[in-house]
């Protein structure tokens, strides 16, 4: 990648790169396929670092991973509800992040779980918190010569997490809004919470104020509704073919409340 710079493009599953090339939106001189790097396909628990997801793991690899099913079933569910089966068989987790589309499904939950990514180049490797990875639609801090090798979910105190893609049909729909939450419950008090929203801003965002509203107060339906309203206020969606700004904001309210309730009572689902 050093050699080609901006003239080259990494090819993972190709579900995004190739369709953009076909539409004439992208014309790299060189495609560098990562296909043969089998070590980047693994998903495993590393006692020192947490759960590691290789960048080349496909969505179906995520959905089928025993490690994830045991630790973060929510992530399996998220992957399972993406795209359609053909795309889930080829599209990769790394591609989903680097692609940096605001409506992408994996970023919100990974952000909620506090994940970080490892970027590698000939100059060495660095770790970036996923939350700080995205800079705008289709823009990230990754440099042209860097490759994303893995996603790491550090061990944490979260007792539950979940994600909901609100799409306009049951398969092959992109998110109108995406809401991910991770909660650390102690009795009926929420000690820690992260709320991450997709499709409502140029990048996935955290709803920091909403998180504060929830923390350390007895959880009631009323409180969750208040958190939802606050998150809606923090979102800044555009109106487009999938929904108006007003609709999207209200859906953030609804699904923040619903997802919190689900993660609080059902765990990682």
């Amino acid at each position: 990648m050093d050699q080609f710079g901006a003239r080259g493009k990494v090819l993972a599953g190709g579900t995004d790169v190739l369709s953009m090339m076909k539409q004439g939106l992208l014309a790299p001189e060189v495609l560098v396929s990562l296909k043969n790097l089998a070590e980047l396909k693994q998903i495993y628990a590393d006692p020192a670092r947490g759960v590691v997801i290789g960048a080349l793991a496909t969505h179906n690899d995520l959905a089928d991973s025993p490690v994830l099913q045991e630790r973060y079933l929510s992530l399996c569910q998220t992957a399972h509800h993406m795209a359609n089966n053909q795309v889930r068989n080829t599209g990769t987790a790394g591609g989903n992040l680097v692609n940096a589309v605001p409506s992408a499904d994996l970023p919100p939950l990974l952000i909620a779980l506090g994940a970080a990514v490892t970027l590698v180049s000939t100059g060495g490797s660095r770790t970036v918190k996923l939350e700080e990875f995205f800079t705008g639609p289709r823009m990230t801090v990754k440099k042209d010569n860097e490759i994303l090798t893995e996603i790491v979910i550090p061990d944490n105190s979260f007792t539950g997490s979940t994600y909901h893609k609100f799409g306009l049909r049951r398969s092959g729909a992109l998110a109108v809004v995406g809401v991910a939450v991770a909660v650390a419950m102690e009795g009926d008090l929420c000690r820690d919470v992260r709320i991450a929203l997709g499709a409502v801003a140029p990048t996935p965002i955290r709803a920091f104020k909403a998180e504060e509203v929830l923390k350390n107060r007895p959880v009631t339906d009323q409180l969750l509704e208040e958190v939802g309203r606050c998150a809606a206020g923090e979102s800044n969606p555009i109106s487009d073919i999938r929904g108006s700004k007003e609709y999207r904001q209200d859906m953030i309210r609804v699904f923040t409340r619903r997802m919190l309730k689900k993660a609080i009572s059902e765990g990682h689902v």
Partner: peptide, 15 residues
């Protein structure tokens, strides 16, 4: 705006 099968939303088998 939606001259494709992604955003011209035909129902799917699941629907």
């Amino acid at each position: 705006v939606n001259g494709n099968l992604g955003e011209y939303r035909l129902p799917t088998a699941l629907d």
